[in-house]
C-alpha cells in the first residue's frame, strides 16, 4: 500500500503533502502532552519495534502467514498522536532507505497510514473499549485501520486517473478485507499478551459513550469506508457521481471539484506552467513546514 513516486498526479500529491505537514505537526504537539519529560527516544525505538514486529509470522492456514502492520496497535498503546509520529517516521525511512513508497508521495502515504489509518484504528477502540466490548473495539480498530488506509489510497489513485476497473477495485477491496481481518485478529492477540505483561502499557480510553453508541459510530465508520470503496468502483468515478446522484453528496463536490478543476487547468496548460506550478506547490509546502516547525519550537520555549 506504499504508493511509489510517478503514480499520483501533481495536484494529488501536492495537496496531500500540504495536508500531511500540519497533520503531523499537530500530532507532534498532541504526543508531547502525553509523553513524560520529552521521552522522544521511545517513539524511535517503537518504530524499530514495528519493523521487528513485521517479521513475526502469524500462520493463517493454507500454508500462508500474515504479520502485524501495527498502526492500530501503536494507537492503542502509545496514543494516536505518538502513533502518527512513529508511522510517519517509518514512512520517511522506508522511502529513503528501502524505496518503499515515494518521496513526493510521502504526504499521501503519511495521510493514508499515519493519519487516517491511525485514527480509524483508534476511534473504535476508544468508543468500544470503555463500553465493555474491549476486544470487539480492538478488532474493529485493526480492521478499520487497514480498510480506511486502503480506501484513501484507492481514492487518491482514482483522482490521479490511474486506470482501475470496477473489477480491480472489487478484487483489491476483497484483499484489503482479508488483510484487515488478519490485522484485527493479530492486534487482539498481541494486545492481550501485552496487557498480561503490563496493563499499564495500554491506553485507557475514558469518558466515552456506552456500548450502543460506540457500536453505532463504529458501524457508521465502516459504512463510510465501504461507501468510498463503492464509489471508487463506479466506472466514471467521482466526477460523474454528483450528477448521477442528482442531489450530489455536497461534501463531495466541496472537496473533489476544486481538485478536479485544478487538474483541468493543469492539463490545459503547457509543460512549463505545469512544472512551475509543481515547484511552486513544493515551495509552499516547504514554507508551511518551516513555519509549523518554528511555531512548535517557539511554543516549547515559551
Amino acid at each position: 500500500m506504499h504508493i511509489p513516486d510517478g503514480i499520483l498526479s501533481v495536484p494529488v500529491w501536492a495537496t496531500l503533502n500540504a495536508v500531511a505537514v500540519p497533520g503531523i505537526g499537530w500530532a507532534v504537539r498532541q504526543a508531547k502532552k502525553g509523553l513524560a519529560e520529552g521521552q522522544v527516544p521511545l517513539l524511535g525505538v517503537m518504530g524499530a519495534f514495528v519493523f521487528a514486529a513485521q517479521r513475526m509470522n502469524f500462520p493463517v492456514g493454507f500454508g500462508t502467514s500474515g504479520h502485524l502492520l501495527g498502526g492500530a496497535m501503536l494507537a492503542m498503546t502509545m496514543g494516536p498522536g505518538a502513533a502518527t509520529i512513529i508511522l510517519s517516521s517509518i514512512l520517511i525511512l522506508q522511502a529513503l532507505l528501502f524505496q518503499d513508497g515515494g518521496l513526493l508521495a510521502l504526504g499521501a502515504n503519511s495521510v493514508n497510514m499515519a493519519i487516517i489509518g491511525v485514527w480509524a484504528g483508534w476511534a473504535p477502540y476508544r468508543m468500544l473499549a470503555s463500553g465493555g466490548w474491549r476486544n470487539a473495539g480492538v478488532f474493529a480498530g485493526g480492521l478499520l485501520s487497514v480498510l480506511a488506509s486502503a480506501a484513501a489510497a484507492i481514492v487518491e489513485l482514482r483522482l490521479s486517473e490511474v486506470p482501475m476497473s470496477p473489477a480491480v477495485v472489487g478484487a483489491s477491496s476483497a484483499v484489503f478485507l482479508v488483510t484487515g481481518v488478519m490485522e484485527g485478529l493479530i492486534t487482539v492477540a498481541v494486545l492481550q499478551a501485552v496487557e498480561r505483561l503490563n496493563p499499564g502499557w495500554l491506553r485507557k480510553p475514558e469518558g466515552m459513550p456506552g456500548r450502543a453508541a460506540g457500536l453505532l459510530a463504529t458501524a457508521a465508520l465502516l459504512m463510510m469506508i465501504v461507501g468510498v470503496l463503492y464509489i471508487s468502483a463506479l466506472p466514471d468515478g467521482f466526477e460523474s457521481m454528483a450528477e448521477r446522484l442528482g442531489v450530489a453528496g455536497r461534501e463531495q463536490t466541496v472537496w473533489a471539484a476544486p481538485m478536479a478543476e485544478y487538474e483541468a487547468s493543469f492539463l490545459a496548460g503547457d509543460w512549463s506552467r505545469k512544472a512551475l506550478a509543481g515547484l511552486a506547490g513544493l515551495a509552499v509546502i516547504y514554507g508551511i513546514c518551516v513555519t509549523v516547525g518554528r511555531l512548535l519550537v517557539r511554543q516549547r520555549s515559551a
Binding site: 507532534v28 508531547k32 522522544v40 527516544p41 524511535g44 512513529i86 517516521s89 520517511i92
Partner: peptide, 8 residues
C-alpha cells in the same frame, strides 16, 4: 522539526 529528526 527537531523532534522528528530525533525520532528518525
Amino acid at each position: 522539526p527537531a523532534v522528528m529528526v530525533m525520532v528518525l
